[in-house]
Nucleic acid binder design. Structure first.
Length: 414
RNA sequence: GGAGACGUGGGUGAGUUGGCUGAAACCACACCCCUGCUAAGGGUGCGUAUCCUAACCGGGUACCGAGGGUUCGAAUCCCUCCGUCUCCGCCA
């Protein structure tokens, strides 16, 4: 959630910043009004409560002293009655404010480039030269078929469309990649965690998936549980509603989880192959950082994900997302896009974001800064998306006969 | 899933005939004083959120697992849910 006090006190600046993310000024004006209304409603209610409390105290005193209470009782009853509409007004104001506030995306950093959508993202650099083929490189689904690596039909039979089964060496490669990623992250200082793959609604709200993006999530029937769309949810919320000591920062965590997404709104995109599935594996990095240090941590995370791609010998480019392409919670995001020779384009394989205090405010993650509690900064990033790495290896390491080489660094894992 | 017990501040732990308890005491922690040597004495402070205010000075409100209810007034009574422990059932 954005800082409502900041919005109130620096309205022009705040609304200019959010325009980059496509939030119109009217919405923000409404938000500001609702905030003021809530404050006024609460002030009135709290004054009445103070009155009630002091009269109640007197009431007890009268009874102890054996005084007559009929007059006081009348006053206190009247005040109680008068509080009912105040209570209602405060409740409504709060509901209106938060239902709107929770749907407002995070401020982008000032350095984030302007832009409407992914077309206007800024390429920062390319790493590793794409290999030149003396034959026509195939797309991963064709290679999958040749090698018997991915059983799309049976994935659909077992679940529904956009589910797949990996078989044989593909399944082993998937597992090898997970191990390689986790080992690498651990060597960089990330603690490895194995977390629940279902989280409750409060956690999903903490990281920003709820309430706005409920349609993208798989919900467990009859339970307050959702299948996680990313390990960012459980990892970040490890410290939900906690106060960390300053010297515990930064907290660096990594974990492998499957991720479950309905992919609502992406009908018709990437329907062929395994680029966009309802379930996919990912190894995630999450950092909880001191607000003054989150930029350093961010750079470290980008570097780490990049190093993994380099180690795998996969060509990629580093892209800074423009305001319009930035996710709901992100203040800044860098994507790593891996080269897919079969598709002849770069495709996202990692996304590293700094959410600043946006998630921390929702999830109430603070640290002790001297005597005071301050919100931390939270960061997350894939290192890496496993299924897409598998695809990238297939397409980049293919031979003319359709066979696929295993990258050197993975051999010890196979 | 069934039965019983329980859920208080960083920790231990008082507080269940509703009011003087936002919450004793002890420990831990922080600062100060005394003392002076491997041990200890004294003092003060020590939850979170939010509002008023220039203010982390003062004051209001809320919070004793969560959410409702009864009442002038609830940590204390009632309901629902969550969790913990024990026994049973089930199971990797």
């Amino acid at each position: 959630m954005i800082d409502l006090k900041y919005l109130q006190n620096n309205f022009e600046e705040a609304s200019a910043r959010l325009q980059k993310k496509g939030v119109d000024a009217d919405t923000l004006t409404r938000l500001k009004t609702l905030f003021a209304e809530l404050k006024a409603a609460n002030a009135a209610l709290e004054a009445a409560k103070a009155e009630q409390n002091s009269m109640s105290k007197l009431f007890g005193q009268y009874k102890r002293e054996g005084k007559d209470i009929t007059e006081l009782k009348a006053k206190v009853d009247a005040n109680k009655e008068a509080m009912v509409p105040l209570q209602e007004r405060a409740r409504e104001a709060e509901e209106a404010l938060f239902s709107l506030a929770l749907a407002i995306p995070n401020f982008p950093d000032n350095e984030v480039p302007e832009g409407k959508d992914e077309e206007e993202n800024v390429e920062l650099r390319r790493v590793l030269e794409p290999r030149s083929f003396d034959f026509e490189p195939l797309e991963h689904w064709a290679l999958a078929e040749k090698n018997g690596w991915i059983d799309f039909e049976r994935g659909v039979k077992l679940a529904k469309s956009r589910f797949a089964v990996l078989r044989g060496d593909a399944a082993r490669l998937e597992r090898a990649l997970i191990n390689f990623f986790l080992d690498t992250n651990r060597e960089k200082g990330f603690e490895e965690l194995c977390v629940p793959f279902m989280n409750n609604a409060q956690m999903l709200q903490g990281t920003g998936q709820l309430p706005k993006f409920e349609d993208d999530l798989f919900k467990v029937e009859g339970e307050d549980l959702y299948l996680i769309p990313t390990a960012e949810v459980p990892l970040t919320n490890m410290y939900n509603n906690e106060i960390l000591s300053e010297d515990a920062l930064p907290v660096l965590m990594t974990g492998y989880t499957p991720c479950f997404r309905k992919e609502a709104g992406s009908a018709g995109r990437d329907t062929r192959g395994m680029i966009r599935q309802h379930q996919f594996d990912k190894v995630e990095m999450v950092a909880i950082a001191h607000p003054d240090k989150s930029d350093e941590v961010f750079e470290m995370m980008v570097q780490n994900a990049s190093d993994i791609l380099t180690a795998l010998g996969l060509p990629y480019r580093v892209v800074e997302l423009c305001g319009g392409d930035l996710g709901f919670s992100a203040a800044r995001t860098i994507d790593l896009e891996v080269w897919l020779p079969g598709q002849n384009k770069y495709r996202e394989i990692s996304s590293i974001s700094n959410t600043r205090d946006f998630q921390a405010r929702r999830a109430k993650i603070r640290f002790k800064d001297g005597k005071k509690n301050r919100l931390v900064h939270t960061l997350n990033g894939s290192a890496l998306a496993v299924g897409r790495t598998l695809i990238a290896i297939m397409e980049n390491y293919q031979n003319e006969d359709g066979s696929i080489e295993i990258p050197e660094v993975l051999k010890k894992y196979m």
